[in-house]
């Protein structure tokens, strides 16, 4: 454990040094992270205004709060591993990692946390500006604020492990683009990224309960907006734990099989 902490601290230094080298791309990336929820927010504000000031249980200020919190939740839980893994497998970059006496996932976890720590202050500043610009109102009960932190960390853990597992499709196919695209479309609709899930048709809502996506985005967002009861929160936590266990088991199985394939055909 002590060793892992040292490793993460050292990776933080490396990531920091790298991010300073890529300042321009950091800015572009941040703009993207902000722009997407901003577009959805504006669309929903227009819809709400044209239908008498609200849609379902969401008023214009609720929409603003929803998408601003969503922007932060997405920022914390987002990973880019699915874009990267194919390159690692195809170009043989993974070989260098496999020669190291540490599981390659650790450098990804550390790298991910590091870049989040570096970019989070910027995102929080933008969120505060948006709160005033869009007159967002957030008034969660104290317990919800306290539970929000572990819920957010669980959401990050599940999303990270899940996407790290899916990324390993690259071991079996050189064209992971189609898989990534399907995943991102499903994620967009079923996580609550494009619209609050309560506004979607009933069958979609049922489906979203069975899949992991909503527990990664919609659940933490609604929790902080004070829209969940304690029972609903407990159910959500249960679902997060369940998916964490499932995804860790999947990761182990898929990783073992994937490395076998990789080391069989020419690393």
């Amino acid at each position: 454990m002590k060793h892992l902490i040292q490793l993460y601290v050292q990776q933080f230094k490396t990531t920091l040094a790298m991010m300073f080298q890529y300042r321009a791309s950091l800015v572009i990336w941040t703009i993207g992270q902000v722009l997407e929820p901003l577009v959805y927010l504006i669309v929903w504000l227009v819809v709400a205004k044209s239908s008498g000031g609200s849609v379902g249980s969401y008023t214009t200020t609720d929409f603003a709060a929803y998408f601003i919190v969503l922007m932060l939740v997405n920022q914390v839980t987002y990973t880019w591993i699915m874009y990267e893994f194919e390159h690692r497998v195809r170009e043989g970059v993974l070989s260098v990692a496999l020669l190291k006496p540490v599981h390659p996932i650790h450098s990804d976890i550390a790298d991910n946390i590091s870049s989040k720590i570096i970019t989070l202050p910027i995102m929080i500043t933008i969120a505060i500006i948006f709160v005033f610009a869009f007159h967002a109102s957030v008034a969660p009960p104290l317990w919800a604020i306290l539970v929000f932190i572990p819920v957010l960390l669980l959401a990050f853990s599940v999303r990270f492990v899940l996407e790290w597992t899916l990324a390993q499709a690259a071991f079996w196919t050189t064209r992971v683009g189609a898989i990534n695209q399907s995943y991102f479309v499903a994620f967009l609709f079923l996580s609550g990224q494009i619209a609050p899930l309560t506004l979607l048709p009933h069958p979609v809502q049922i489906l979203s309960l069975l899949l992991p996506f909503r527990w990664l985005i919609s659940f933490p967002v609604e929790l902080l907006l004070g829209r969940l009861t304690m029972v609903e929160t407990l159910i959500g936590l249960g679902a997060q734990f369940g998916w964490l266990i499932v995804s860790i088991i999947l990761l182990r199985i898929v990783w073992r099989a994937g490395v076998k394939v990789y080391t069989a055909v020419g690393a």
Partner: peptide, 22 residues
Amino acid sequence: RNQLVWDIPAELTFELNQVIYR
């Protein structure tokens, strides 16, 4: 094939290896 991180000084990769290899 390289293990050194392209955009940063080699010293940082060295330090990372120090931790990785204990």
